[in-house]
Design a protein around this nucleic acid. Structure first.
Length: 294
DNA sequence: CCATGTCAAGGTCAC
DNA sequence: GTGACCTTGACATGG
């Protein structure tokens, strides 16, 4: 069982940079990418030192990678640096995931949105390929919008998924959300496409079809094949006194321990979507040690 | 130097 | 109708 956190680390100087489209230049892109690769290594070193073997890499690694303005063959230009990072990841058995932005919607009715989404997915896959990582390193997306007709929108997801490049399909997993598409919806899509279902534990609590957590875990895990690796979970909890769906600032030790008791002997890698990032990830590791899960 | 409006991209819903 | 929210605030202009 690996514990991870998303994109940035608040203990080390994360240092990742981006810039505005208006100031785009090839030189600027190269400067920022070089910077981002350097700081990714800093985060990896922190993780290795602290036993955090799961990491979500920011989609902003290569700014504008999928935008027409970007003519730089960054994968080739930085191939040695990217391979070096990949070797560190592989040597230390770290698992990587990515989560494209909210603009990636393969079930959209709009051609332009679909085109942008596919370009963005190809970029994510290319980055993971550039590290030399296999397809257990996943890209997670949501089903998308409802567009006033949920059944039709699910059907569109299925058809669009089938037409994606093979390598993208092998990396993609679909995640239940907190309002529109539940675990049951994702499982239906899995039946038609075999896409693995990533269970977001918090979203499942927000929106479900009555499956208790133990059953939800079992059903989601069953959609992952050997080549997909250990099933991944996203874990968070409700921020007290905030709007439903807001993520908590720091992990609640008792809730997490209670949750872990549902998983039985099954293995999962857990991504903590919690505001204080690596701090909660370290706490989670301590809790797992006490429960003898590590 | 610092405050703050704005940033490639979508869609939903609480208010 | 607006704005917060979603994996993450950071950039850059104007004062």
């Amino acid at each position: 069982m690996k514990i991870g956190y998303p994109c940035i680390n608040l203990s080390v100087n994360s240092g990742a940079k981006t810039f505005r489209l208006a100031t785009y230049s090839e030189a600027k892109l190269k400067e920022v990418v070089e910077n981002n690769i350097f700081y990714l290594n800093e985060i990896l070193q922190f993780n290795i030192a602290n036993g955090l073997l799961f990491l979500r890499i920011s989609s902003g690694m290569i700014p504008f990678a999928s935008h027409p303005v970007c003519k730089v063959d960054w994968a080739d230009f930085y191939k040695d640096e990217l391979k070096k990072i990949g070797n560190i990841i592989k040597k230390n058995k770290i698992r990587i995931s990515m989560h494209p932005d909210q603009f990636v919607l393969i079930n959209t009715p709009k051609d332009q949105v679909l085109e942008n989404s596919i370009s963005e997915l190809i970029y994510h896959n290319k980055l993971l390929d550039s590290f030399g990582l296999d397809c257990t390193h996943k890209i997670q997306i949501h089903v998308g919008g409802v567009y006033d007709d949920k059944q039709l929108s699910i059907q569109r997801f299925i058809e669009r998924y089938k037409k994606l490049p093979l390598k993208v399909k092998k990396r993609l997993v679909v995640e239940n959300d907190d309002r529109l598409y539940s675990l049951a919806d994702c499982l239906f899509i899995n039946k038609k496409t075999q896409i693995p279902v990533l269970l977001d534990v918090f979203h499942h609590k927000c929106y479900n079809q009555g499956e208790n957590m133990a059953l939800a875990l079992k059903k989601a895990a069953a959609t992952w094949s050997k080549s997909d690796g250990v099933p991944i979970l996203d874990y968070s909890s409700q921020k007290p006194h905030a709007r439903k769906g807001n993520h908590i600032e720091s992990i609640n030790a008792r809730d997490f321990a209670d949750f872990i008791k549902n998983i039985g002997r099954k293995d999962f890698d857990i991504m903590l979507e919690i505001k204080d990032k690596e701090k909660s990830a370290l706490k989670a590791r301590e809790i797992l040690k006490k429960l003898k899960k590590l």
